[in-house]
Amino acid sequence: MPPRLKMPNRTTRTHIAFLALPVALFVTFYIYPIISSIHLSLHSWDGFSPSMRWVGLQNYVTLLGQPRFFNAVINNVTWVVFMLIVPTGTGLLLAALLDRGIRGESVFRILFFLPFTIPAVAVAAIWRWMYEPSNGLLTTVLELVGLGGLAQNWLGDPAIVNFSLMGAVAWWTTGFAFLVFFAGLRNIPTECIEAARIEGATPWQTFWKVSFPLLWPSTIIVLGMSAIDAMRLFDVVWATTQGGPAYSSEVLAVQMYDLAFGRFAMGRASAVAVYLLLLSAVIIMPYIYYMSKRVTESEAE
């Protein structure tokens, strides 16, 4: 062994040993399937014939010419915006309110978290009733309070269906944001809050000037997870509308599924998957880059 390449020291060896299994799992279960998807996307294949036909980039080109594809892309982007704002904002609001020492805190805490534990198919089934357009809970309540004019054909109107699905997903996922923010608020040292109060800050000011900046780590987690969930969104849409009516609520993962198994177009579905991966990369990569940069920052601390 040449002397320059000295044996790595004990710490480095330990580090490598620790990373070996996770990295091996990652390569096997992430990298290999992605490469195989890219391979499939360059072929025309029904999904079960013994042979497939090489078509080059044709699947990619065809998709770019389809309004259906762009509709799904736009839906995905809308979902990202929605997920970054609504469940996150609601979760923050609820956490901030509940953090002020309200009686029955534990009941509220369980209630806000509960929907998050329900499986997606059940969420879909429950909200199919909520949104039943003539006798469902939502329409009934609106009529009871004299706002019957606001009632909509919740899941059947192509112009409304995305908002309806978002409402259901907000109900489903706000619990996560709430939980993280609530934990974040409880982690803020009481001295900071006390100090602000002594200086005469109102609770509103205290929250925005003192608590919120200290919540940044929680916010990062919630925003990142929300964006990732929005890109991967599948279950609830598939189980509630299957992307309908007439593709109006389709997101990329749903389109991929429909092409692959609804129409036996495995190659084209794989091309959708690769586009989805690229789009996620564009939207989420900055976040991941930011997170990995924090490694250096925390080392500097």
Binding site: L19, V23, P33, I34, R232, L276, V295
Partner: peptide
């Protein structure tokens, strides 16, 4: 190790692992 490693190799591995969060499970 990723929390304690210094230098760019740790950062690179971390970045690589995090990209896994982008992958929609349907494609695998």
């Amino acid at each position: 190790p990723l929390a304690y490693m210094r230098g760019s190799s740790g950062k690179l591995v971390y970045f690589l692992l995090l990209t896994g969060m982008l992958v929609p499970f349907q494609i695998v």
